[in-house]
Simulated assay, not measured.
Amino acid sequence: MFFGLDMEKLIIIGVIAALLIGPERLPKAAEALTRFIRQARDWMRGAKGKMKDELGDDFDEIEWRKLDPRQYDPRRIIRDALLDDAPVRTVQAAAVGGAITAAAAPPQRFEPDGPVPFDDEAT
């Protein structure tokens, strides 16, 4: 696939472009497109080489598919965050007479059929 297009759509776009450009200007347009693709490929190779130089040996170890932003689903991220067991945090406050330690209420586990969680300190 080429940027999410399948081959039939790409051929249709090419035929329409050839009809719009015309037979006189088609060789020049194809040459310009070829030049642009070569420049873009050279630029990408240069960027990849520069990244490889800056990251060193760690460049090959990076799992690039994990960094693809298209894989993230905000609904899944929020659901996982709500269903995840959060660690219990303690709150410590300093007073004039000494240190006062107050334990925060343990976080409540989100139940899909239960009431909506509400944090009165955040609002």
Score class of each variant (00 low, 15 high):
A30Y: 07
P74F: 04
G114T: 02
D58G: 00
K52E: 10
V116S: 06
A94S: 08
L82Q: 08
A40C: 03
R89S: 13
L83C: 09
F59R: 03
Q39M: 14
D113F: 10
A104H: 05
R41Q: 10
A103M: 08
K28Y: 10
A17L: 15
I13K: 12
T101H: 12
A86M: 05
I11L: 14
I78D: 04
T90C: 01
I100W: 01
F110G: 06
D80S: 12
D73A: 07
R65Y: 05
D84T: 14
G14M: 13
R75L: 09
R70F: 03
Q71F: 06
Q108N: 11
L55Y: 12
Q71Y: 05
G114F: 02
D57M: 01
E54L: 11
D113K: 05
D53R: 07
G4L: 03
G14W: 07
M44E: 13
L5R: 14
R75Y: 07
M1I: 02
L19K: 06
I21P: 05
D73F: 08
M1W: 01
I11G: 00
L19F: 07
F118S: 09
A17Q: 10
L10G: 02
G98L: 02
D85L: 01
E31L: 15
F2C: 02
A105R: 12
A40I: 04
A30G: 05
A86P: 09
T90S: 13
V15Y: 03
E54Y: 03
P115V: 09
R70I: 01
E31C: 08
W43K: 11
D73S: 11
D42G: 04
E24G: 08
A81V: 08
L5C: 03
E63M: 06
D119C: 05
Q39K: 15
F118R: 11
P115D: 10
A81T: 12
P87I: 08
L5F: 13
E54R: 12
I100A: 06
P27T: 13
P69I: 01
V15D: 13
A94L: 15
L20T: 14
D80Y: 04
R38I: 10
G22K: 11
D85P: 02
Y72C: 00
L55H: 04
D84Q: 14
D53M: 09
I77S: 04
P115Y: 01
P112F: 09
E24Q: 11
D120H: 11
A99G: 10
R65L: 09
P74E: 09
T90P: 00
W64H: 02
L19W: 01
L33C: 09
R35I: 08
D120Q: 13
A102Y: 11
P23K: 12
